[in-house]
């Protein structure tokens, strides 16, 4: 192997390892923040509201506890490799978990209670927890008696 090729391979390999390491060790909360900001960008929502949610989640560990380590890794890798050309395996699982993250956040706001109105500013109201606040499933017949 020529010296130049060797150096190129080594650099690419090292870059790969570094990127892989970054993804593997990336703080899960940082990733969740990115996902929430991106996926709710069409709503009237400020980053302060998102940060209030993240702070409360950190305090009661609800975020990390919501998804096992393997799912967290799956989310990280998919998120960073998201592209129109190819998708990594377990894409459905990824989509479901990503929906769960955004869902958990939105359930902790008044968005669903306001019947998903994209024009009303969204406010954080407290971590969604049926044991702290029973009867709060916003899709139920209590909220949609005439559905």
């Amino acid at each position: 192997m020529k010296r130049r090729n060797f150096i190129w391979l080594l650099t690419t390999g090292a870059a790969g390892v570094a990127a892989g390491g970054y993804i593997f060790f990336e703080n899960f909360e940082v990733l969740v923040r990115k996902i929430i900001i991106k996926d709710t960008s069409s709503l009237s929502i400020s980053t302060e509201e998102i940060d209030k949610y993240l702070l409360a989640s950190r305090e009661n560990k609800s975020l990390v506890n919501a998804l096992p380590f393997s799912n967290q890794q799956l989310l990280k890798w998919h998120y960073h490799f998201d592209n129109p050309l190819f998708s990594l395996p377990y894409n459905t699982k990824y989509e479901i978990d990503r929906s769960r993250i955004v869902g958990n956040f939105l359930l902790s706001t008044d968005f669903f209670i306001n019947k998903m109105d994209a024009t009303t500013p969204v406010k954080y109201i407290g971590i969604y927890d049926p044991y702290q606040k029973p009867c709060s499933n916003p899709f139920s017949n209590l909220f949609y008696p005439d559905a």
């Binding site: 996926d39 929906s99 869902g103």
Partner: peptide
């Protein structure tokens, strides 16, 4: 099932 799952697409949440 009627747990509060959503679809992660604006305008199509539920």
């Amino acid at each position: 099932s009627n747990i509060p799952f959503i679809r992660n697409e604006p305008g199509k949440w539920r």
